[in-house]
Amino acid sequence: TYTWNTKEEAKQAFKELLKEKRVPSNASWEQAMKMIINDPRYSALAKLSEKKQAFNAYKVQTE
């Protein structure tokens, strides 16, 4: 089980997950979700809006 003390740690864990699963920077949210949804870190960020925000930040960083 994973635990995160801060929102920032949770966001980092979520981005690490995207990186580890090699989600391409041109992937849509739907494509990315299919690649990461079974990992416990997918739940790091509770709100869908937070997940999408972190995903978009990840995409910008990896382009």
Rank of each mutant, 00 (worst) to 15 (best):
M35N: 04
F14L: 02
A32T: 06
E63C: 13
K15V: 14
S25W: 11
E9P: 02
E20G: 04
Y58E: 03
P40I: 12
A46S: 13
T3V: 15
F55D: 02
E16I: 05
S49A: 10
A10I: 03
A54P: 01
K7F: 09
M33W: 05
A54G: 03
T1Q: 15
A57G: 05
M33E: 10
K47V: 11
N56R: 11
A46R: 11
F55W: 07
E50R: 03
E16N: 08
S43G: 13
N5W: 09
K34A: 13
K52V: 12
T6I: 04
K51T: 02
L17N: 00
A46P: 15
K47H: 13
S43D: 12
V60W: 12
R41F: 01
K59W: 04
E20D: 13
Q12C: 12
T3K: 10
Y42L: 01
M35L: 11
A57F: 09
V60E: 15
F55Y: 07
N5L: 10
D39P: 00
A54T: 06
T3R: 05
S25F: 14
T1V: 10
N26C: 12
E8I: 06
K47E: 14
S25T: 14
F14W: 03
T6N: 09
Q31H: 07
K11F: 15
K47F: 07
A32S: 03
W29M: 02
L48W: 07
A27T: 08
R41E: 01
D39H: 01
W4E: 08
W29L: 03
K19W: 14
K21F: 08
A10F: 03
Y58D: 01
S49M: 06
S28M: 07
S49E: 12
F14G: 00
K51W: 04
Y2V: 15
V23M: 02
K19R: 11
N5C: 14
F55G: 02
L17S: 03
K15N: 15
A27V: 06
E8P: 05
K59V: 10
K59Q: 10
T1G: 15
A10W: 02
A27Y: 10
N5H: 14
Q53K: 13
Q61A: 13
K11P: 03
R22A: 11
A13S: 08
A57D: 15
L48E: 14
A10T: 03
K19A: 14
S25Q: 11
E9S: 05
Y42A: 03
Y2R: 10
L45D: 01
L48P: 07
L17C: 07
A27P: 01
I36N: 00
S49W: 09
K47I: 06
K21V: 07
S25G: 13
S49F: 05
S25H: 13
W4L: 02
K34D: 10
S28L: 06
N26R: 07
R22D: 12
S28R: 08
T62H: 13
K51Y: 03
I36S: 01
T6Q: 04
K21Y: 09
Y42M: 03
T62E: 14
A44C: 06
V60C: 14
Q31C: 10
E63W: 05
P40N: 07
K52T: 05
A13H: 09
K7Q: 11
I37N: 14
L45N: 01
M35T: 05
N38A: 10
I37R: 11
P24S: 06
F55Q: 02
I36Y: 01
E8N: 06
Q53C: 10
K11T: 15
S43T: 10
I36L: 06
A32W: 03
E63A: 10
A27S: 09
A10L: 03
R22M: 13
Y42S: 02
Q61K: 08
L18E: 00
N56C: 11
A13I: 07
T62R: 06
L48Y: 06
K52C: 06
L18I: 04
S49L: 04
E20Q: 07
K34G: 12
K7A: 11
T6C: 07
Q12S: 09
P40H: 09
E30M: 08
A32G: 05
A13T: 06
Q61Y: 09
Y2A: 15
A54L: 07
Q31E: 12
K51M: 07
M33Y: 08
W29G: 00
A54Q: 07
W29P: 00
N38D: 12
I37Y: 13
E8D: 08
L45I: 12
N56F: 10
Q31K: 06
E30V: 08
K15Q: 13
D39I: 01
L18D: 00
K19H: 15
